[in-house]
Amino acid sequence: MKTLRDIPVGSSATVTKLSGQGALKRRIMDMGITKGVSVHVDKVAPLGDPIQVTVRGYELSIRKSEAENVIVED
């Protein structure tokens, strides 16, 4: 199962499902990462974590551990 964490910098993927629950899941959704949306991975922070993605036309930072909750397909 592919997650947002596995997407290489510079490519996009479509969200198929969100795993996890509670505050973290709700926060991910509230920020606009929902089923069917396209997420573009812009870059990795200088120290290797977190990553920066573009979703719904704005920039969002998300830790790799949190990105694992976002299941995607290319």
Binding site: A23, I28, Y58, E59, L60, S61, R63, E66
Partner: peptide, 12 residues
């Protein structure tokens, strides 16, 4: 508690 989520907007 878990480390607070870092799902943060990078504002323009």
């Amino acid at each position: 508690g878990e480390t607070s989520p870092f799902i943060m907007e990078l504002p323009a």
